[in-house]
Design a protein around this nucleic acid. Structure first.
Lengths: 221, 221
DNA sequence: TCAAAAGTGTTGATCCTACACCCATGA
DNA sequence: TCATGGGTGTAGGATCAACACTTTTGA
């Protein structure tokens, strides 16, 4: 057991995006300091009671400082705690889930204060520090549960999106393929997607252009 | 903002049971110490790093110390944190959900170290301290989500239970009524409830006795 | 005119709801 | 024998998965 009186309190973030081929990707950073220096880990950091007015603030600040991202929608997953998960002693981490809109992915690549990488969350090709492998599992599970529950991962897309893009996003999360007709019928019946951004037609490569949609905030998660 | 370096770290427990009339009830305790002395609140307490090897341990210890319950299955709901929820300063609480088997309810009544009460979680007739009203809401939501998701709140019942008791438990949680035939069909098809505890027939009041069932552990939650 | 992706319609299987019905018991 | 709650069968409606089909564009 530890002799310390207070635990370390921190926030970690599992930040997902879609890559160019619409595959689900997870952001990891290379740790600049001990412990686990040089290892890969989820972006995270210690609570600063004087700066943060909640753990969500901590997570937000961490994202700002480590990846240069602001105003990312966050969702709590769960707490990881114990006297053995961090060599510095008793620690408690609140894990947050975040989805990065397609149009902000380049911003991460630009910001170069820390080494960052996008990895496949299903089969990570790097070893993750601490219990961050479990965290990734938990975050994935939470994300999948939501999509399975008919929620739409709209935050993975740009504000203007096509139905096929939305379907690809759901498929990437659940790692399945879905029927186009059924997917669209479910959406249309649910009444809440605003139609046709009048001239917003995406002229993709060499095929028929697709209708663009915009969703009201309540459909985001 | 607070000047403290470390936050208070604690665990709170939303412990549910069914009363004699199969209604969902929530355990609250009267606070013996400041802050909020004399007010009602969820049972909770501070992390003791030297005794607890995880936050779940903290929750378990709290239940043991405050209500005299041991080995209650716990499930994490989520974290409540911030600099304004507790007058003592920056604080972080991990909320746990627990279901109390019918045959252990009397044990709580016996244990008299703290004043305890069972209240209706939907319309609490007492004012709860801190942000515990939000906690109750969150715990209820988590519980309902599970039952809606076809999970069985078996921990609310004795190990030997009748199908009607199980249905009443689900109904109490969701605050609805369900169709008997449909409920039973769903169960039977799911293959996993062991049948007939040979002589375990409950001879309720003045009607036909009901078949008793026992479930394998994987169906509990 | 062809490939590729957008977008729609149909059909059979499955699940769910509502309700009717029989069964076993205590009074 | 009647009231009460345990337990089952069925029919109609909603939902869903699978697949075939039409449309619109760039090359």
């Amino acid at each position: 057991m530890s002799k310390q009186l207070f635990p370390l309190v921190m926030a970690d973030v599992a930040l997902f995006c879609l890559d160019e081929e619409q595959r689900l990707r997870l952001l990891v950073t290379q740790r600049a300091l001990a412990p686990a220096q040089g290892n890969w880990a989820l972006p995270g950091g210690l609570l600063k009671p004087s700066q943060d007015s909640s753990m969500e603030d901590t997570a937000r600040r961490v994202l700002r400082e480590k990846v240069g991202l602001d105003a990312v929608p966050l969702e709590q997953v769960r707490v990881f705690s114990g006297d053995r998960r961090d060599e510095r002693g008793w620690s408690l981490s609140v894990l947050y889930l975040a989805l990065l809109p397609k149009d902000q992915v380049p911003a991460v690549a630009m910001h170069k204060t820390d080494a960052v990488a996008w990895i496949d969350p299903n089969s990570p090709d790097v070893e993750l520090a601490f219990d961050h492998a479990s965290m990734v599992q938990a975050a994935l599970q939470a994300l999948r549960a939501k999509v399975r529950d008919r929620k739409l991962p709209l935050h993975l897309l740009s504000p203007l999106f096509t139905l096929t893009e939305l379907q690809r996003a759901c498929e990437a999360v659940l790692d399945t393929t879905m029927d186009k007709a059924a997917f669209r019928r479910r959406l249309k019946e649910r009444e809440g997607i605003d139609f046709e951004a009048v001239e917003g037609e995406e002229k993709r490569g060499r095929q028929r252009p697709a209708q663009c949609y915009r969703a009201t905030q309540e459909f985001y998660f």
